[in-house]
Design a protein around this nucleic acid. Structure first.
Lengths: 218, 218
DNA sequence: AAGATAGTGTAGTCTACACTACACATTGAG
DNA sequence: CTCAATGTGTAGTGTAGACTACACTATCTT
């Protein structure tokens, strides 16, 4: 009878914590490199040093290890995105800064790897989806929506639907680029290309297509 | 020595075509239901009827079958989206119609399944990524960009960057919704919800946030 | 009717790998 | 010192599954 919830007991001793981290590090490297299904627990132990028994003591089974790894990651990845002091900037500059930071983070090979693995495994491990979304994309959307709400309170923009608005803006930023990078159809965009795209998105978001240059709409 | 390119010879006889289609149908059902790695070729044969030998004669190996299935699918899925007569409509209506059709298609469980499988397998099967993108999302982006170009030629909107603009608009439409559905975090949106979101995106795309109601930007 | 072409069915090979068993080492607390 | 908990190392076990071999059948063409 396999354990329903893998026993991810907090390590008591210092040595225990080290072994646990080594296993997580190895798991991360290998899972993101080859994909969950293509990595054996033996590979991970070989990479991490230590012993198979230890792995099973800590994580219960392969899935437990995977989830622990994803959880650790999705938290740390988006921690750099805590836009602070953003309320003092004009909205153009604020969105521009957030957009650039976000695109750089999201185009990063590690972030893309996490995304691929989560999408691939989520049908079999639904907890994974929540874990990832709430720790990553969901948190960014929340933060941006809060920013919009603060502006609305200061009467700097209309009230209401801030979460949806945030989602739309984030969608604009990623657009087709994310898919293209997830599928590895093109090489990563340069810093300059990122800045240009963000600028275009910000303008579009604030003023619509009309404002791009001349031209009237039908 | 495994064949480099799977022998996907076009079936000559009628009976051959039937057997081939039956295999593809079964493959599609099972792959989308359980995921590529979780389906055995024997499962597929059992579902399709016929024989293992036939499968290998047609597709060479498991990957060949998978690719043939994805190719067939990504072509047919987006065929419904050939927006015709769209040039006669005001741009609001045109974008609205396209947006609704697209969101319905993209939120469909089958389309989401294809997406998941392609993302999951693309690192191991790079041809797959191209196949999918060019047959699906890429074609939609191309079609929308062409529409923008035609409008630009009629001086109804600014010239240039139509492909990027199309990508941005499509990104707005999907936004966070796509991820949420891919990860199955929420149930499918209602028709009404889709219409509301598309309307909001179209307004935003054409006029920016300013126009949503009152409120001035900083 | 005879041979080519494609489909069937079964049985089997070979390999990979999740997970376990077990005997032994290390460490730290009382 | 000792005993309990934790880590190590090796050597399995059991199973699943991709792919092959082979003997046979159905159909179609000329």
């Amino acid at each position: 009878m396999p354990p329903i919830s893998p026993k991810d007991s907090p390590p008591t001793t210092e040595r225990g914590r080290q072994r646990r981290d080594a296993l997580l590090d190895a798991a991360q490297r290998l899972f993101l490199e080859r994909g969950y299904g293509q990595v054996s627990v033996n590979d991970i132990v070989a990479q991490a040093g230590g012993s198979l028994s230890t792995l099973y003591r800590h994580f219960g089974n392969k899935e437990g290890l995977f989830q622990a790894m994803i959880e650790r990651r999705s938290h740390h990845i988006y921690d750099t995105l805590t836009a602070e002091g953003v309320d003092e900037l004009p909205i153009e500059a604020a969105l521009q800064r957030l957009g650039i930071d976000l695109l750089i983070k999201v185009m990063d090979e590690e972030t893309l790897g996490i995304y691929r693995e989560v999408v691939a495994e989520s049908p079999r491990q639904p907890q994974l989806a929540r874990l990832f979304f709430d720790g990553g994309p969901g948190r960014v959307r929340r933060a941006l929506a809060d920013y919009f709400d603060r502006r609305a309170r200061r009467r700097l923009m209309p009230t209401g639907g801030s979460v949806e608005l945030a989602g739309i803006f984030l969608g604009m930023l990623l657009g087709e680029w994310h898919l293209i990078r997830v599928l590895q159809l093109e090489s990563p965009p340069s810093r300059a290309a990122i800045e240009a795209r963000v600028a275009r998105c910000v303008t579009l978001f604030l003023h619509g297509t009309e404002d791009l240059s001349s031209g009237r709409s039908q």
